[in-house]
Write a protein that binds this DNA or RNA. Structure first.
Lengths: 247, 247
DNA sequence: ATTTGTGAATGGGTTCACAGCA
DNA sequence: TGCTGTGAACCCATTCACAAAT
């Protein structure tokens, strides 16, 4: 109940669900409930109760038997675990359609990841204004990263230059990359990489749709997880790759 | 080598990788190679060779020992399996920042999923032009879906109305949904759902970054996808939820 | 000599079911 | 009595390693 020693290593799949639990708890924020059961949290997060309990146990067991979990404390623990006690500015590379949209997307800043800079390789775009930001040259990436103290970079360029951009981000000191370009990118082992490929998501949906239409009810559940993002036909939402996408 | 009978049920994780293989093969398109080894394809897709072979075996074994796989035939099989032999127009619900960006995103049409319609609940937006499309009222969703013959819907609304929109999509006949709203959404078992939550991706990266900075080199691989998109620190890129996002 | 296809081994994650505690 | 925490069982996925095929 009090401070617990650092838990066992947290499984990948659990990590991917923590943000979902966090979001669910935040929605409960004002609610009168000071405590929440694994059952209720499971419902909010779209997973089952046993999974919630096991996941939370990796954080160190902050529940009380017969009662449930203290909401405030859970929020605190999860935020700390996820490193969300401070804002992490991100730099977006590639200011085309997608990059621009991401730059304007409220959701990032709202959840602790303000867009701190935009860079592009096209000299014609450099100096252009997007929201509050002015597009900078990719040549200045090291300076931009240093200025922001940024360690997170988003790649929103065409696929052809994604690897090159990733290399530049790494060279500039970025340690976490979220890749939106439809290309396989590799990074050194000390850099984290996640990818979001919108067309791939649709193709996966297309697969299951085809299956269903063909008469085979391939009902699956999943979660990535992820990575993914579960994927397939099923009802509730779960993370991971399979059935549901990610959250 | 010739026509093979329908293979065993294809695992979720394999389905999530097929689009990546497909993309890799397409990049090889013009190349002179008529054939490709599992080793080479693995390299292009950012996975290991054993996985490629097992995955392809679910499609029915179209390789030739000592030689490799026929590129053309693989492309054909995968496209067929993924239902990509025809275009699937999609309808985007919610034309805010994100919805607008998605509407302009080339990547969808390029890969067989042209945006066929945009709908929004805000009367002020209805009638507005975005690219070639005119925003329609969400009240007309059933008609829009019927007109397009669409079975895929994208939710790009605020979280608060995501479930409501999902219900409307389902009622209108949509059988596959890609949810971008940061909310848990549930659908009937005969409807496929995947989710993409951009802030969640960043939070996962934040977790691993924190771990690393804290001295623990938590090197993991993933794919979500995994998570999903796989998720964590690691080098190569893979699909699924975890380590890598999805592509 | 190569490279596939696949059983067997291994590992991670989910679910069960119940003991332990409030 | 209620709900957490967790070992055990189960299931899916990855990886190994080698026999089969060309």
């Amino acid at each position: 109940m009090t401070d617990r020693p650092p838990r066992r290593r947290i499984p990948e799949a659990t990590v991917a669900r923590l943000p979902v639990y966090l979001r669910s708890l935040l929605e409960l924020a004002d609610g009168p409930a000071a405590t929440i059961s694994s059952e209720r949290l499971a419902e909010l997060a779209g997973v089952n109760a046993a999974k919630v309990r096991k996941d939370l146990s990796y954080l160190g067991s902050y529940g009380t038997r017969g009662v449930g979990y203290d909401v405030e404390y859970l929020l605190f623990q999860m935020s700390r675990e996820l490193g969300l006690t401070q804002d992490w500015p991100v730099v977006i590379v590639g200011v085309g359609n997608l990059g621009q949209a991401l730059a304007n997307y409220r959701g990032f800043a709202d959840r602790g990841f303000p867009v701190g800079a935009l860079v592009d390789a096209d000299p014609a775009k450099v100096g252009e204004r997007v929201g509050d930001l002015v597009i900078e040259s990719i040549d200045d990436l090291p300076a931009v990263v240093a200025r922001l103290g940024t360690t997170i970079g988003l790649i929103a360029t065409p696929a052809a230059v994604a690897q090159e951009v990733a290399d530049e981000l790494v060279a500039a000191g970025v340690r976490s990359i979220l890749n939106f370009a439809p290309a396989v990118v590799t990074v050194p082992p000390d850099v984290s990489l996640r990818k979001v490929d919108l067309a791939v998501e649709l193709q996966i949906l297309s697969f299951y749709q085809r299956r269903r239409t063909a008469g085979l009810a391939a009902a699956v559940e999943a979660s990535a997880r992820g990575d993914g993002n579960g994927a397939a036909p099923g009802s509730s939402g779960v993370p991971t790759i399979p059935a549901e996408a990610s959250e």
